[in-house]
Structures are given as structure tokens and as C-alpha cells.
Design a protein around this nucleic acid. Structure first.
Length: 483
RNA sequence: GCGUUGGUAGUGUAAUGGUUAGCAUACGAGCCUUCCAAGCUUGUGAUCCGGGUUCAAAUCCCGGCCAGCGCACCA
């Protein structure tokens, strides 16, 4: 079996990802997935690394509603920006975006576009035979109603909902710029044809950090110098090679324009590394300036090289300039300025599900004699497993007692079925870092063996010290060799 | 969305119009053994959904849903 197929199989069998959801009703809906117990634990670990990471760089967490009235999205630009005018070939039925067929259009009016297509006798670029007649309007936002008939939409990103808090946040941070906040939550996009499993779904979790700053902060950013020696694997637009550039050189060498923006790239990259991704499978790639999203001035993506889908975006780092606050000031008639200047926003946007899934694939090790997940310490969904060597002589009772103690502090499982070897393999398959076994000697000596997944080596530790040792191992305070 | 291939226990598969829907693995119970997927006994568990053809459908036909791939869309 190929690595990527093994991951899908594992994810389903062992309770990471199920779906599409609701699976028992005709196979579920395209683009919606359930996260099983182990998947949810893994997601939590990833989310907590991001949460801790952002907090550690002085970003403060907020939470906003997922539904916003139409006006918000008119202001944010998603109402127009996320709309496509689509038409279908009369012969081959292939779908085309109208603005791709006619690139000189400025006035986007559904009726007029259809008339233009017919007048100009545009020919289908796919089959070169058919033409076009009817234009359809498609928006990627999911629509709903509030109360009786107020039009509203599920947010297509968390970022915009964070921006609406600017006046309150500015006061919260006691009018000192720059300041940072982040939000973790669901976002929705009505993708026409979701594919690639959990990499493109219609409902997903974003964790997005926003840095609000003024022009004077662009290149006088304190933290930039603190991490100047850190290297970033950058791939500039138009280049095919990754260059390892010191953060401190990223401006001088014209990779990026603002120190603060380069710093945001570093933050995102550091968090990806904290999750335990292989360094040689990470790159930070610049977007084609011509294809930037409607709000962006510069954009780089952190991408991971996956077996299944090649390079996949886990995180986007965007320079949104003063676009958002200006628009919301205009549409809401609320002042969004600091000393006459509309602040700039720099954004880090993580997709949580795709990150968790990429980490799962990235961690799968296919040895000759076993498949196991090589997670960084603290990432494995299950922290620790407890086994009695045999179900007799009281070994099982002691093991159960130990389990119920550990279960209070850790994600912990107890298993006494089958041979000891089988139980180790069961845990290896889901990447459980440590297994504790109660054997004959435990009954006399009050100690147990602890085994680590990567080397399969074991050592004996006192039962009274188990909780502390496991805590230190998982947090990375000590390594297995130290025992 | 269009085209194409496909959908059988949790997973991987066998059965081409008539089988009690077979096998492996997994999981449960028990025995034995005990530090790296051993063995034995026993059990659990499936034809995606809906219609049609037929005496008879997992199998043939139609529609839907879902998945993979190509195009298109999307970040």
C-alpha cells in the first residue's frame, strides 16, 4: 500500500477522520467530515500549539460569531470578491468564468454579461465548437436568515469578524500600537466541488492571527531583531528553488518589504516547526502578484510536501494593508483611524484540519516490521498506555489502579487483551509515545517498565514517580535517554 | 458542474442472474503462553440509497448519493 493510502486507511480505522458526514445517510455530504476521538485529540494538540505560540508572541485571543449580516460582507469585499459569474458551453457543457472569457469587462451585471457573450459570439476554449448563452452568478458564501427575513451569511474567514472589533481592541490595548489578536473558529465556503479529502472542505477551522500596526512600525519592529538569525526557507515568486534566508536579511535581499511582515512569516514558520514537521518538507512560497486575493498586497504561503497531494498550503501570511479597516470605516461610518492614519493589518491564517492531516501523513513511518507514527513529544493523541504483562497474580489489578491515576492527568488507555507485543503495536500505530507495563517484578519492587515508541527501548521507573516522569517526557523537559 | 471509473462486514477482498454471500484481517469472550502483530476455541459484523426488469438481482437497466481520476472551479 502507498504511504498516502495507508494514512487514509489508518485515519478511518483508528478513529481520526470519518466521513463524509453524515455518513449513514446516503454517504454524507461532499466536503464535510467528522473527527473521531483520536483525530480530535490530535487537532486539539495542533490548535494548542498555535494558541500557545501566538500567545507567546503577545497575541491575545478573541472569539466572534460565525454569522454576520450582509452589510459586513459587502464592506469586506467578499460579497463581490467571492462571486463568480459562470457560464456553460452549449456543446461540451464545460464551465467557464465569464471574466476569463472576456477580460475587458468592468461592469459586472448578470444580464449584460449574457448579452455580451452572445453578441461577441465567444467560442468555447475547451471544445472550440460551442458557444455560451446563460450566465449564472455564484457566491462562495453560505446564506442564511436571521429572524424573519434579514439576509445573513456564514463567515468565509474568521479574520473579518476580528477586524470589526478594532475600536474596542484599540481601547483594550490602551491605544498603544502595534497590537496583535487571534481567533480560532469555524469558517464556511460553499465550494462547488470539494476534493482532496480534508484539504478542501465546506466547513473548516481557521486560526488566524492579526497584527494591527502603523507605518512607523513597518520597519522599526522590535521583535524582528530578536530573531534576526533565524533562517526561513523562502521561495520567491518566479523562482523554482528554495533559498534559506536569515530573517535579518529578508528585507535587504528584497524578499519582503516590511520587517513586521517578515516577522509574521517567521512566527508562522516557527509554529509549523514546533508541530514537528520535517524541515525539508516545508517551504514558504510567494504568491504570483497578479493573482493576489482582492485584499492582499503581498502573500506568502507555508506549504508542506505531502505524498498524496504534493505541496499543500497549510498557512497563508497576508499583508492586507489598510484595506479592511478603510472599508469597514466607510460602510459602518465608524472611525477606524489612529492619529489620522488607518492601521495596516498583517495576517497569519492557518487551516487547522489540513494541518492536522498533513502532520498525520508527515509522521507515518513505514518500517519493515511495523507501521508507526513518529510524533514529536507531546503531539501524540494518546499520551500513555498501561498494560499488565499478564492478567494474573494481581498484575492486572495494579495496572488498572495505575491507569486510573494516570487517566486523571493524561490521555491514557488501558489494554490487557492479546499478547504484549500486539498491544505495543496497537499503540505504535497511533503514535502513542510511551507504554507502561506492569510485570512480575512490579509486584515486589513497586516499579514498572516504560517503553518509548521510536526506539522500542524500555527502562524501569518507580510507580510513585510515573506521573511526574510522564509529564516531563511529554513536555520535553527530559528525554527518554535521561531515564 | 461536465466527462470517466468505481462502491460487498471496521479494513482489504471473493462470488457475473439461483451460494446459508466465501476468505483474510480487525474487534469481543474464553483457554494457553508471556516483553514486541504466536496459537487454539468461539462469537460479532457487509452487498451505498431508491426504483425497474425477472419466477429469481450483490450481479442487468434507470435515477440519486459518495469516492478516485481528467477538465473546470477554488486557496
Amino acid at each position: 500500500m502507498k504511504v498516502e493510502d495507508k494514512v487514509l486507511d489508518l485515519a478511518k480505522r483508528r478513529g481520526f477522520v470519518w466521513g463524509p458526514s453524515p455518513n449513514i445517510y446516503e454517504g454524507g455530504l461532499k466536503g464535510f467530515y467528522d473527527w473521531g476521538p483520536l483525530g480530535k485529540l490530535l487537532k486539539n494538540k495542533v490548535e494548542n500549539i498555535l494558541r500557545k505560540g501566538f500567545s507567546g508572541f503577545s497575541f491575545w485571543e478573541v472569539e466572534c460569531p460565525t454569522i454576520m449580516p450582509k452589510k459586513v460582507w459587502e464592506a469586506s469585499g467578499h460579497m463581490d470578491g467571492l462571486i463568480d459569474y459562470v457560464t456553460y458551453c452549449t456543446k461540451c457543457k464545460s464551465a467557464h468564468r465569464v471574466d476569463h472569457l472576456m477580460d475587458d469587462i468592468e461592469d459586472f451585471n448578470q444580464k449584460k454579461l449574457g448579452e455580451l457573450l452572445r453578441e461577441r459570439k465567444i467560442i468555447c476554449p475547451s471544445c472550440k465548437k460551442g458557444g455560451f448563452e446563460v450566465v449564472e452568478k455564484r457566491n462562495l458564501m453560505m446564506k442564511t436568515k436571521i429572524g424573519l427575513d434579514q439576509e445573513a451569511f456564514l463567515r468565509p474567514e474568521t479574520a473579518t469578524t476580528t477586524y470589526l472589533l478594532f475600536p474596542e481592541l484599540y481601547r483594550f490595548f490602551r491605544t498603544k500600537m502595534p497590537f496583535g489578536v487571534f481567533q480560532s473558529g469555524k469558517a464556511y465556503r460553499n465550494e462547488i466541488s470539494p476534493r482532496q479529502g480534508v484539504f478542501r472542505t465546506r466547513e473548516f477551522t481557521q486560526i488566524e492571527a492579526q497584527l494591527f500596526l502603523l507605518k512607523e512600525n513597518f520597519n522599526d519592529y522590535e521583535k524582528f531583531n530578536d530573531y534576526a538569525d533565524e533562517e526561513l526557507p523562502l521561495m520567491k515568486y518566479g523562482f523554482k528553488k528554495i533559498e534559506h534566508i536569515r530573517l535579518g536579511d529578508s528585507i535587504k535581499k528584497k524578499f519582503m518589504k516590511k520587517e513586521a511582515y517578515a516577522f509574521m512569516n517567521f512566527v508562522a514558520y516557527k509554529l509549523i516547526k514546533d508541530m514537528g514537521f520535517d524541515s525539508n518538507k516545508i517551504r514558504i512560497r510567494q504568491h504570483n502578484p497578479a493573482e493576489l486575493a482582492f485584499y492582499a498586497d503581498d502573500a506568502w504561503d507555508i506549504e508542506i510536501n505531502t505524498e498524496r497531494h504534493g505541496w499543500m498550503e497549510l498557512c497563508g501570511i497576508h499583508d492586507r494593508k489598510d484595506y479592511d479597516l478603510k472599508r469597514h470605516a466607510e460602510f459602518s461610518k465608524t472611525k477606524m483611524e489612529v492619529q489620522g492614519e488607518t492601521p495596516t493589518i498583517l495576517e497569519i491564517a492557518f487551516g487547522l484540519e489540513r494541518t492536522a492531516y498533513a502532520l498525520l501523513e508527515n509522521s507515518l513511518v513505514d518500517d519493515k516490521d511495523r507501521d508507526w507514527l513518529n510524533f514529536k513529544q507531546g503531539i501524540a493523541p494518546i499520551d500513555i498506555a498501561v498494560f499488565p504483562l499478564m492478567k494474573k497474580e494481581g498484575m492486572d489489578d495494579l495496572a488498572k489502579e495505575l491507569f486510573s491515576n494516570l487517566d486523571k492527568d493524561f490521555a491514557c488507555v488501558y489494554d490487557d487483551s492479546g499478547s504484549i507485543g500486539r498491544r505495543y503495536r496497537r499503540m505504535d500505530e497511533v503514535g502513542t509515545s510511551f507504554c507502561i507495563t506492569v510485570d512480575h517484578d512490579s509486584l515486589k519492587e513497586n516499579d514498572v517498565t516504560i517503553r518509548e515508541v521510536s526506539s522500542m527501548k524500555q527502562t524501569r521507573i518507580k510507580i510513585s514517580e510515573v506521573t511526574k516522569i510522564v509529564k516531563d517526557l511529554i513536555s520535553g523537559k527530559i528525554s527518554f535517554e535521561d531515564l
